[in-house]
Design a protein around this nucleic acid. Structure first.
Lengths: 211, 211
DNA sequence: AATTCTTTGTACCGATCGGTACAGGCGAGG
DNA sequence: CCTCGCCTGTACCGATCGGTACAAAGAATT
């Protein structure tokens, strides 16, 4: 969809593939450094609320540079931010859930990574913000995919940890909802500890290892 | 804060008190009929996204009428919508939780009313939408108050149902978060049943009556 | 040094934003 | 019937919206 790294990839000559591949792992392009800043603006003000003025202020780049890097405008910026977030979670959360030999380790890793990402409740979920607003309809796939793949990966880990199919489905949904809701409450009350408490409860809800 | 019913109250002469009191219970003024429509616009598009154009379209009223009824503009409209929602929950949820002789009945009533209000997951929470966005800082009291009083009322009911202080606090937070999160997930996946499942889980999490 | 291509600031675009001014429509009371 | 006061449609306001055009600055290549 949104070609993150397309600009750097275009510059690649005979060694195009190798360069592109490395760029995808740790991209040092200005574009990559930009996405987190863009993400913060969207996270804080929502898609509609993130005006070009706010974006230029937050990034330090003028419209010229912005539209040179993102010819598709706001829509493209948001799309690339979403895919960057998706990649982060894929790497730090979904993959460990699916691949770790010991499922409980993957689940523990998820809770740690999630606590980090949401800054222990000081940050809200950009995908959640988009989901609640009108932007959902413009980024349906990204929004659906994020939660769905998370739930799927978690349910799979829970099954491997010994839970029955139905219980794993329910519990994974329960844990995701508990987290998202805690982020809402934490921001509403301006009290990030609400999120920490929720994370702890969710972790306790996962059946302990039997072995 | 925002004087809902102030316009009708102003008209009241010697019988001002009585008229005002009745107006608060079932207000038949055009203003009262308007607030739900306004609420739907804010709920769907967020505070910033709810443009005057959208509002006039949804209400059928021109700017002239709108600003005659709400001299304070969008800000006043949103404020009155928030107090109307607060009043609804106070009546249908918080009061039953606090006052019902049998706390389990109050809690059951809460789940029923909540399911109704959120249309079994087809509707999102306006206060949650505001909480996540920049509008939170403009309506801090209303946003904080809504969740805080809900949590407080629920915790009190749980205590009366036999739970210890700390457990009641945790569980009330857990239930609110589970609901809010389920609304986010339901809208993200466009699958309202996520909310129904969450409601059921939350209800089961409340300790059964001992007697 | 000359040339080429990328990057950037700035001026500008039409559309829309929230809000105001106000003239007339309208219905109730005299 | 006339008047008075609430209500409402419309024209208009400056500001800002997202986006475009383009010329000059910079960097890289030869």
């Amino acid at each position: 969809m949104a070609g993150a790294g397309a600009a750097s990839g275009r510059r690649a000559g005979a060694f195009g593939r190798a360069v592109l591949k490395r760029a995808q792992k740790t991209d040092t392009s200005p574009r990559a450094a930009l996405l987190p800043k863009l993400g913060e603006v969207f996270r804080t003000y929502g898609y509609e609320g993130a005006s070009l003025t706010l974006i230029t202020a937050a990034t330090g780049l003028g419209k010229g540079s912005l539209y040179h890097l993102f010819p598709g405008g706001k829509q493209q910026m948001a799309a690339e931010v979403l895919t960057e977030i998706d990649q982060w979670f894929e790497r730090e959360v979904f993959a460990p859930l699916r691949d770790s030999a010991e499922p409980h380790a993957g689940i523990a890793h998820m809770f740690r990574a999630t606590d980090d990402y949401f800054r222990s409740g000081r940050r809200v979920c950009l995908v959640g913000v988009f989901a609640l607003g009108a932007a959902r309809d413009e980024f349906t796939d990204a929004v659906q995919g994020y939660f769905d793949r998370w739930r799927e990966a978690l349910a799979q880990a829970l099954r491997r940890a010994g839970q029955a199919r139905a219980e794993a489905m329910e519990l994974s949904e329960d844990i995701l909802a508990g987290m998202q809701g805690a982020l809402v409450l934490a921001r509403a009350a301006d009290d990030h500890k609400i999120f920490s408490r929720a994370l702890k409860r969710m972790a306790e809800r996962v059946p302990k290892r039997v072995g």
